[in-house]
Design a protein around this nucleic acid. Structure first.
Lengths: 375, 375
DNA sequence: CTGTTAGCGCTTTCAT
DNA sequence: ATGAAAGCGCTAACAG
């Protein structure tokens, strides 16, 4: 086999090799790379020829050490198993890469202490900026960032105290509107499937939105009607099985995201509970997973891609010393599909909330579906 | 607002600060970090105290420059929109991170030239190793890697020439077995929905598997019955619409991955074509997206996570100078669900291929489904 | 076990 | 417009 070379034999082509071949100093090679406009066109050509002849690749590490900028941005996300963070990161990566920045990836699996740990690791690597998911973090994370003194931005939520730059949307409003709509459809007995809200402000805020809407309508969410699950199909399915086993089974279940909602749908199918005739289900995030179910999952289109782009734009502006808007709350919109239907109170003629007409079922095909702007 | 600090004021705590406080030299500080066993326990304690007192974070860039190892691994994937690569990368990241390595992420969106470009960028950053997706790459990529002289591994396929270290599975065999099974079910008229095979060996090999199985059974795949699509639901849906418009509509359609298959299912639903009564559909990759459809999508469980882990393990072994197995072909397995049924020849009593009994429909719930080991 | 010394490859003054 | 020289913060020899 040829895979034997002990990794790193060949002496690398350095700026001084290029300099020698082009008959200039290393300083000029550096200028040719970083500020070509200050180099005599003729010299520039010679240097560039030498570079391509030698297949010179600059040594970014040395550059970073000297210039104190690494051109790397750290992205710290809870997990890539939930596809959304992958898509946001993808958008982030794309935008940053257009400006010559690379993305260093880290996951913390919903452990705030692991987050602290990987952040320290990224600081060691010398990243120029950070992107975090969520607004809930260990206080030590913020003091670490404070010490390091480089830009960071929180995403997927908006810092209620406006202390930290953040790019997200109003998670609470999203589920509030969903719950309100279900109340309008005549539902009175609700259930919720939620991710563990500890250190997870998305879950917490989405739960709060549901509770607020119910409270505003004089309804309550029983503790027994809140089931927690990990963000995975099997775990959500189990949670919904517990819900279905309750004596006072809910007629509408709000899940705090699409994975939990689809897991719930699986439980219903298995138990022979019809959607939406027996039970209405909603998610959040408007994933393909939910949209392609039969019936399609009613959800909230959250600004997945936009968050990544806006976070990248903000950091680029900051790293290059430009003005930037620190707090951005992006719009979302409800997407109605067949997974919800009228509740038992619908026919009794006492709608205790402004009842939008119920979009009954039908739209199983995805993109064009009934939408209600919001945000 | 407080977000004003021009990013990088505060002078960083360096090893010499720790050294001064602990009353040792910087060399000892370095040793305390990198080979504590060579440091007197008492000295070590003093150094560590000083470190935590000063909240010292080592300057990885300087370390990299000097030691010629950056502790970063570059992962170059086609796209994160197709969740699989995200999951493989996640597994990769997790395993590498356990050994102190970080992952730098790059996407090339199925453009081999962009891949070359981002690889150069990662070389500039000084990554210690690379992970690529697929075995098809620009020859210049390989000569660039050769020059750089650091380990890399190809994933999701196995290099047929065994020239490059690779960790994947037999893509051709996967679809071969699927097609053979459908033939056994009595299908004779086939269609295929494929990603553009240009520079995409997964698509190419999966297509070849279908053709080989048909050829072995004396059947042909008409050119008109092969429709290409981008790996996205809407694009696949359109491709399937074209397929359904054919005069000789196929009774079984193999898609080269689950996204394409589910897009095809959407087209069928929209057109009122029943699955599996009118048409059988299969995918590859066994995603949640496919598994949760109604009916569930028959697919191939590919070693998504295992690839990431094995690639990480190989690179770690190589970077640390240990023995490693360069070529690994991991097992896959067929997962039968309700999206396939008997073909027209099933009742005519002339099964031209070993007909496994047709698992009819039913299994809509995911994890436990009929499985056939393979690989 | 610990200190001294040199220098990784680049960018950045400061001259010219 | 270009060159000379000085480090960025660390680790790797080499002494002791």
């Amino acid at each position: 086999m040829v895979f034997s070379r002990p990794s790193g034999n060949r002496t690398r082509v350095a700026a001084k090799d290029v300099a020698r071949l082009a008959g200039v100093s290393t300083a000029t090679v550096s200028r040719a790379l970083n500020s070509p406009e200050q180099v005599d066109p003729d010299t520039l050509r010679r240097v560039r020829d030498a570079m391509s002849k030698l297949r010179y690749v600059p040594h970014g590490v040395a550059r970073s050490l000297r210039s104190r900028r690494s051109k790397m941005v750290g992205a710290i996300v809870p997990s890539f198993d939930y596809a959304l963070y992958a898509r946001t990161t993808s958008a982030l990566q794309q935008r940053l890469s257009e400006h010559g920045y690379s993305v260093v990836l880290a996951e913390h699996h919903y452990e705030l202490l692991d987050e602290l740990q990987v952040t320290r690791q990224l600081i060691e690597l010398g990243v120029d900026a950070f992107v975090f998911v969520g607004v809930d973090h260990d206080p030590r994370l913020f003091s670490l960032l404070e010490d390091y003194g480089r830009p960071y931005v929180l995403t997927w939520g908006v810092d209620p105290m406006r202390l930290h730059p953040s790019v997200g949307f109003d998670n609470r409003a999203a589920t509030y509107q969903l719950a309100r709509h279900l109340i309008g459809l005549g539902h009175r007995r609700f259930g919720m499937i939620s991710a563990d809200p500890t250190g997870n402000d998305r879950a917490r805020e989405r739960g709060a939105g549901v509770r607020a809407a119910l409270a505003d309508a004089g309804l309550r969410l029983e503790d027994s009607h809140v089931q927690y699950a990990r963000i995975s199909l099997p775990s959500a399915q189990q949670a919904m099985e517990r819900m279905l086993a309750l004596s006072q089974r809910p007629t509408a279940v709000l899940a705090t995201n699409d994975v939990l909602a689809v897991g719930s749908m699986l439980a219903c199918r298995k138990a022979g509970v019809r959607i939406p005739e027996d039970i209405s289900i909603t998610g959040v995030d408007n994933t393909d997973l939910g949209a392609t179910q039969t019936p399609g999952l009613t959800s909230v289109r959250t600004p997945i891609i936009e968050i990544g782009r806006a976070a990248a734009d903000q950091l680029i502006d900051r790293m290059e010393g430009r003005a930037f808007s620190a707090i951005q709350s992006l719009p979302f919109e409800l997407v109605f599909r067949g997974s919800i239907g009228p509740g038992p109170a619908a026919s009794t003629g006492k709608p205790s909330a402004p009842a939008k007409p119920a979009r009954k079922s039908a739209a199983v095909v995805r993109p064009p579906a009934t939408r209600a702007k919001a945000g």
